[in-house]
């Protein structure tokens, strides 16, 4: 199926144009309808950071250096993942108008939505980079290692796309998946290194950095952006294999369940 999609794109070049058009419209619908528009994409991580800073730095005194940057880079990745998964469980229902009258490939709906989320993410990333480089005090600053964030983010993108397809396909036959995923996301947040020192996290929850796919992404993103280190390669490789497996499962599910979306939803 993947091969067919790629071949199709090459043959009919308007597909890339269409994905971009749908992404722009999705982005507009999400942000331009509100008075503050795109600022909402930034307000959410900032308000979270404010709360967590008070709780974990001022009250619990974890003593993590540059805690705001430490939180910022983790939260924007986490929020991107949550928006792209929990926010798209019902996508085949809400975007039914796109495929109920034509033989349009549904994968394009997912790609355009995730592309719209990327626009919001890059806006946040830009603010993070400015904050980290010029505002946050006593940071070592960015190095060339920061470029390694590109494959790390792509890894996150594949995870988000895979889970988004799996969840929305399962939604066709079991609508409770929306609530179940809210619980999974809640648990996933607390068993990730978003708020905690890496050593404490690994000591208390050994192996979870491999089980929770976003943990490895956050650990390696901090390595290349905050600590000027290289990624932990074993974790990096494991997460890519993990993501490929998730995406493959997703495509199989979309093929089996997604084709029934028009009649079931």
């Amino acid at each position: 199926m993947t091969l067919r999609v790629v071949k199709d794109w090459i043959r009919q070049s308007n597909k890339l144009e269409r994905i971009w058009l749908l992404a722009k419209i999705e982005f507009k619908l999400r942000y331009y309808e509100n008075k503050l528009g795109l600022l909402w994409a930034l307000i959410k991580p900032i308000s979270d950071m404010f709360i967590f800073y008070i709780a974990f730095e001022l009250i619990l005194k974890q003593g993590i250096p540059n805690f705001v940057s430490f939180l910022f880079i983790a939260l924007i990745q986490w929020n991107f993942f949550v928006e792209s998964t929990a926010g798209t469980v019902q996508i085949l229902q809400s975007k039914k108008y796109l495929y109920e009258y034509t033989n349009m490939n549904k994968i394009e709906i997912y790609l355009s939505t995730i592309l719209a989320n990327c626009i919001g993410f890059f806006f946040n990333l830009l603010f993070f980079l400015i904050f980290y480089q010029f505002i946050d005090k006593d940071t070592p600053g960015l190095t060339w290692n920061a470029l390694l964030f590109i494959p790390i983010f792509l890894n996150l993108l594949v995870f988000a796309l895979g889970f988004s397809i799996i969840l929305s396909s399962v939604y066709i036959v079991a609508k409770d998946i929306a609530q179940i995923w809210t619980v999974v996301i809640g648990v996933g947040f607390w068993i990730s290194p978003i708020l905690f020192k890496l050593e404490t996290f690994r000591e208390t929850l050994p192996g979870v950095d491999y089980i929770n796919p976003i943990s490895g992404i956050i650990i390696n993103a901090r390595n290349v952006l905050l600590y000027q280190k290289l990624p932990e390669w074993d974790l990096f490789l494991f997460d890519w294999i993990y993501a490929a497996f998730v995406l493959l499962t997703a495509i199989i599910l979309l093929n089996r369940l997604g084709r029934k979306a028009a009649e079931k939803l």
């Binding site: 009919q12 070049s13 308007n14 144009e17 269409r18 058009l21 749908l22 419209i25 619908l29 039914k96 108008y97 796109l98 495929y99 109920e100 009258y101 034509t102 349009m104």
Partner: peptide, 25 residues
């Protein structure tokens, strides 16, 4: 009719529908 999104304007719906039907911008 063809599938349309009620939250979009006529202009946007024309571009979306046209694109889905295989037309370039």
């Amino acid at each position: 009719g063809v599938g349309m999104n009620y939250e979009l304007t006529a202009r946007e719906n024309i571009y979306v529908s046209g694109s889905i039907l295989g037309l370039k911008i």
